[in-house]
Design a protein around this nucleic acid. Structure first.
Lengths: 338, 338
DNA sequence: AACATAATCCGAAACGTTTTGGAAACAATG
DNA sequence: CATTGTTTCCAAAACGTTTCGGATTATGTT
């Protein structure tokens, strides 16, 4: 491996000068800088990150903490988008991204602190952890900077990026209302997570705009689970046969609802309109194709990385960012016909 | 940060001894070792990987080179599985995995060599690159050890893991034959990539077993592309209306075929049976749910990491591994009714 | 007791960078 | 000429670990 020393020898200068020339300091003559650069190029020099990291005491490594999914499930495409977003920003900024999958880590009995200190992680982004995941708490308490996706930290030092969940839900309801629906049920994830609360807010706002009374009995929790959503929506539809549309807080739950509807013999979308949330890849492929609220997951990851890395570099930076989304109308919604 | 020096001071020994105690060398008294371990634990010591890496001259980092997908598509779940498999093995073996997404890298004008040398990558796993991707060539020429997933290297130094593609295709055809199909078309990816050739082999074998003549006109190439598969299968079905089943070399192409069938007014699966390949998450969610050949993508990633890391550690290891798959019968196949 | 062997420990060098504090050379100013 | 300032360079220390070669002590053998 060719080192800075070799360059120094070849260019007949000191290692200091090579280092400073290559790193763009201005206390080196432009002529020598060019000579050094040429030599470096010719010798195919590339700096040893490890050495650099050691002396600067920065690992230039961030962690992306996600819930591991095994076996694979539709949510993977969400995660994958976020990964891409984080990874691209990080690599452009000369950071390494390493992946922590929460279940794997826990299975190995690692605490969050261990995870970070073993790898000298400088900062962490979390995505897709359950709102009561122990790691979230530990992240907030930890001294390593972090940014949460879809989870507002409780203290002020943590950053946060999310989609505009309330607006998305409102759009979804508006769309249903505009089609003529008045009996719109809501399958929410839970009643604690940030996104659930926001989407509930949007749902209520949407109803209010249309002067439809909110009825808490027409809201069920399915914990972002497809089976659960199927079961809950069967109960719901049997109890309130007047329901003509159901809005779901995730595409996965919407899958469950569509399955339920089929089991109950409803014609989709005519006898029941369904709206999802997330725009997972899968939602394009169901029949009928799912109307859903698109979230720019890549952008969320990208932005999270930006906030984190800015912070690590001591730059002034925003601490909370909301990424706009948009309703994607497909085939699972139409005017009520019943 | 607490270093080995601090431990040395606290335990009243030299740094050498701390290092050797913690790393399990046998020239340190068990009593002192225990004392040192206790102190280290109490002081929450965790070794500085960067320093270790510098002195051992090993980055303990492997790269996973995949094709980047943006916008997201169904194949992401494949990639995600592989990532999980690689990542888990790597992290257990104390390696870092970093992700290279080929399009991003190319957009930045990076050569494969740069990618590796910038990060001091010790070895690389590739997955999902097109068989004519320039990086594949560069990988083989490079001196950094690599293992290909689904791509048999030309020279002997590269390792290789794949699924049993021929067997999978054969199973698929057998299944169709057992249902009573005799007119079985094949939408293949291309006629060059390893997996395409293997699946073609399996397809032919399957036909031969059933004493069905192979007809090359009933094979079309769709380059693993959904639209393409849709178009090709429309041509195919119009030209050969006697076809009652089509086997596809990927689930994505099977989606295209199902769409084509619907456009042509076929009743699925009664009037046309469709079999895919991959078992992407999406294939559970189509109507009818897709019969497909399952590939253990997680295992493939895991095994690739195992081969690579064994090699990096100088261990004796296999150089090519075939992971078994299995046919997953769902709802897109049934006896021919036409 | 004398010696050989084994067990246990340690000092110092090394890994490839960055950075500090200053030196040397030269130019500009009084 | 003496002084000050500027430009350009460099020696050496530092980062936290591993490892080489040897030193010291304890144990066993005659």
């Amino acid at each position: 491996m060719v080192t800075i020393k070799d360059i120094a020898k070849a260019a007949n200068v000191s290692v200091t000068t090579v280092s400073r020339a290559l790193n763009g300091y201005d206390d080196v003559n432009e002529k020598t800088r060019q000579r050094i650069k040429d030599v470096a190029e010719k010798m195919q020099y590339s700096p040893n990150m490890t050495a650099r990291r050691l002396v600067t005491n920065k690992s230039s490594t961030i962690g992306l903490l996600t819930s591991s999914s095994f076996p694979s499930n539709p949510k993977d495409t969400f995660t994958m988008d976020v990964i891409s977003g984080v990874n691209e920003y990080a690599s452009c900024a000369d950071y390494d991204m390493i992946l922590f999958q929460s279940e794997f880590a826990k299975r190995q009995g690692k605490t969050y602190h261990q995870l970070c200190s073993e790898r000298q992680i400088e900062g962490v982004i979390s995505q897709g952890l359950a709102h009561d995941d122990a790691f979230l708490q530990q992240m907030e308490e930890s001294s390593v900077p972090c940014v949460f996706i879809d989870h507002p930290g409780e203290n002020e030092t943590t950053s946060f990026v999310s989609a505009d969940n309330a607006a998305g839900a409102r759009e979804a309801v508006r769309h249903l209302v505009s089609l003529g629906h008045r009996e719109i049920a809501f399958i929410n994830g839970d009643d604690e997570a940030y996104i659930s609360l926001e989407r509930m807010k949007g749902y209520k706002e949407g109803l209010q705009e249309a002067e439809i009374a909110f009825n808490e009995k027409k809201v069920r929790l399915a914990y972002f689970n497809e089976e659960e959503a199927c079961a809950r929506s069967i109960e719901l539809l049997e109890e309130f046969p007047e329901i003509t549309a159901v809005f779901c807080s995730s595409d996965l739950m919407a899958m469950g609802v569509m399955r339920a509807a089929q089991q109950l013999g409803y014609e989709l979308p005519d006898e029941l309109s369904v709206v999802g949330y997330d725009n997972l890849v899968i939602s394009q492929y169901t029949t009928p194709a799912l109307t859903t609220v698109h979230q720019n997951k890549y952008k969320m990851g990208n932005t999270a990385a930006e906030l984190l890395i800015n912070r690590l570099q001591g730059k002034e930076t925003k601490t909370r960012v909301i990424i706009p989304g948009s309703l994607l109308v497909r085939k699972s919604t139409c005017p009520p016909r019943r």
